[in-house]
Nucleic acid binder design. Structure first.
Lengths: 216, 216
DNA sequence: TCTGTATCTTTGTCAGGCAAGTATGCGGGA
DNA sequence: TCCCGCATACTTGCCTGACAAAGATACAGA
């Protein structure tokens, strides 16, 4: 948990703004993010824009080579597979750890409850993305490792971008997601690392496969 | 594997130089790394020094808050524990994966051979650090996930810094390290994920415990 | 002793500019 | 017609120099 008060520098604000544009598609896949344009648009100096872009590159939300403008990454099949492989790697071990401690974090339960509610209401499927991410994040955070949380956050940022890009909302039924989450939580509550591991693996494998079929 | 040819910008060179200074202790734990000093020392402009420092902060080799100078992090017990926890998380899953594929990368075998040779010669124990890191890195790289390799590289950079700081060389016998590595490789070659997982867990747990006892 | 203030250090951000590298379009030669 | 080399425009890498703002420090006063 970061402090309640957060000093936001100009660069921080720019990073946040650009992130949002990337996530909601205003900056489409493959679009060039040019330092001078950003600087003009937000009325900041070029070094400020540059720093923000470099930070986004560091977080994986933008890619660029030397002397080339940064671009919003386009996810191909290999990229999606790698993203989910890395994510699965992290989260499987986390589930094992949580199960061996029988630790079901309240935040995860809350997020799960929200997803359940959405599945009943049959509301917009895009609305499930946010609590879903929160569910996974709260599980990872529960093990209490700052480094692990940081790595996971980075992976999830990319995941979110990937989902937005592939327009993956509606590919999976909300009820299925809720059921799979439930299975993970049950296994953790039972203190069964092996089952928790497999339940999570199934959950992510399905999600990944849905994305891959959409990509062809 | 990155390309054979690498365009090194000034900032890249600075990052490399500062990294070395941090690793070999010329910049001791807690030392402040001040933008203007770096700029003067290497005869570059302050923005250049700033960019290099920010990159090192991003890699975890320096820490800093807003309006405060960057500092070489000091590792306390909690920090070491977290570092090894995150590392173990990653590597355990990797070993499982490699074992299920029966994949023993040649680079890992080479590094292991070097360590064996050192254990026979009874040479300087500090010399084991480099091949040891190479051993673990080559295993992670073998799964072929760029993201995973990147995360691991970041963790290992911190690990190296931590070991240098605690002066952990000589805490463990080279022969023991070699034996533990051998156990991991055997389990992978046998296609036994469970055993590979546990062999690696033991290896890292021991290393971590050695560091922790040194810290008191 | 504690507190408030003045000063110094260091970072955040800016403006403007030159050099170097990359992409693009055009014209000439095979 | 197609391919190759060349000139141009665009973009980034790095620079100098500067001012404002935030932390750190030391000192004087209550």
């Amino acid at each position: 948990m970061t402090g309640r008060l957060q000093a936001r520098s100009l660069i921080d604000a720019l990073v946040a703004e650009l992130s949002e544009q990337i996530f909601d598609g205003r900056l489409p896949a493959g679009a060039a993010v040019i330092e001078t344009h950003v600087a003009d648009e937000y009325e900041v100096a070029r070094p400020t824009a540059k720093a923000a872009i470099e930070r986004l590159v560091g977080e994986g939300l933008l890619r660029r080579g030397p002397h080339r403008s940064a671009r919003v990454p386009v996810f191909d099949a290999g990229n999606v597979a790698d993203l989910y492989f890395a994510r699965t790697c992290l989260e499987r071990q986390v589930m094992r750890e949580l199960a061996s401690r029988r630790l079901t974090p309240p935040a995860a339960l809350g997020a799960q409850a929200e997803i359940r509610a959405l599945s009943g209401a049959g509301g917009s499927t895009t609305a499930v993305v946010e609590p879903d991410i929160r569910f996974h994040r709260s599980l990872v955070d529960a093990v209490g490792s700052p480094r692990l949380s940081r790595m996971h956050a980075s992976i999830m940022a990319e995941t979110r971008l990937c989902m937005a890009q592939v327009q993956a909302f509606g590919l999976l039924r909300v009820a299925e997601i809720a059921d799979e989450h439930e299975a993970v939580l049950d296994a953790i509550a039972d203190g069964d690392p092996e089952r928790a591991d497999q339940a999570l693996d199934l959950h992510l494998t399905r999600a990944c496969r849905a994305l891959l079929t959409r990509l062809g």
